[in-house]
Nucleic acid binder design. Sequence first.
DNA 1: TGCCAAATGTCAGTGACTGACATACTCTCC
DNA 2: GGAGAGTATGTCAGTCACTGACATTTGGCA
Lengths: 209, 209
Amino acid sequence: MGTAIAEHRPTGLRERKKARTREALVEAGMRLFGERGYQATTTEEIAASADVSQRTFFRYFGSKEELVLAAQEGMDELLYQAVRARPLQECALTAARNALRDQWELSDTAVMHAQGEALRLIDTNTDLLAAQLRYCHERQEQLAALLAERAGVDPATDPRPGLVAAVFFATVQNGHTAWCRSGRTDLKELVATMLDHLDQVGEAITTNW
Amino acid sequence: MGTAIAEHRPTGLRERKKARTREALVEAGMRLFGERGYQATTTEEIAASADVSQRTFFRYFGSKEELVLAAQEGMDELLYQAVRARPLQECALTAARNALRDQWELSDTAVMHAQGEALRLIDTNTDLLAAQLRYCHERQEQLAALLAERAGVDPATDPRPGLVAAVFFATVQNGHTAWCRSGRTDLKELVATMLDHLDQVGEAITTNW
DNA sequence: TGCCAAATGTCAGTGACTGACATACTCTCC
DNA sequence: GGAGAGTATGTCAGTCACTGACATTTGGCA
């Protein structure tokens, strides 16, 4: 079991070593961020704690923020696959919503836990939030392209795929902050909040309450 | 005429000087960004071009990105006022949509032009995009609070105000990127795109197309 | 074993941003 | 109009994220 992606079985010693170094950096970083806070931890300290040079840190991660965002990496591809697997009679937002649920059920518990830690950390620092939002913006465009392809419309002229993707990620992000703000730590509740918001958003914007 | 806010008439010499320095920094920064690009322009160059020290630059703007975002500053308050002025029988998203239209009609052409320049610049650099998205996130929370107050619901328990605010800004942002990507420079088209997307978003997410 | 390519370390440098302190300027009160 | 208070600015030193260049080590492979 595991992430169902990562077809790159670490065949040689070199690749195994690389994977270990990367994991050591993530582990050291998340631990230090938890202990001293994101801002108060330097990249040199993380590198030293993982027994590599600072230069090596930046060969694995393009920025300090990227280390935190690495936890969500790979989840996207899983989501897109899940969207592709949804039946075509489901409308775009419903398909994305159900794909989110499906993908979460398939995920490894360790990956889920790391995801939760990362999300809680993001809520403590505005630089991280900015990086996360930019990252979501990229994923949003990929989802828009996928939804356009799924429905057989031209994404260059039809704004609807882009709109659904924008609403989807905005709602998910909304669930994220709501979950963090509620002080809960149970990941089931995070997913439940996101799915609940996705269920409500259509009525919330079309009716007068 | 004028921004309708900015009740701070520059009464003394000191305040007039401050306003002039700030404007000189914005003007120098936007000019240099346009000539050499955002990344290739240093804060020292901007400061020198405005005849102040780099330290003074950072007393006016907390970061390099903030100088670009300064153009949108004040537009928020205008938007909130416009929302408050919309009749209560309009549902939340419609009120926000019409408020956006109203606010744009009231704005100064110079302010609008600066806004357009800033938006086009943001589209050229991912650091700026990240800063802009974080800024939108703050504005989104304020709009959510306003919508909750307007409808008389509790924003702590009812997710709908937050959802509408999230959808509103996501859609506006979507219009922004669509406008930039189309290569257009006419601000009327920017507003038209945003309003058009706001009109379409409800049907786009609730129907199967 | 020996060659090639990839991974890493070291070093010097850039640029955003900050705190501390001294100086110059504006405002106000008399 | 001048003294004192408060504010804006310049200067300087320093931190930290991040990068390019080059030398060194290390794993893959003939």
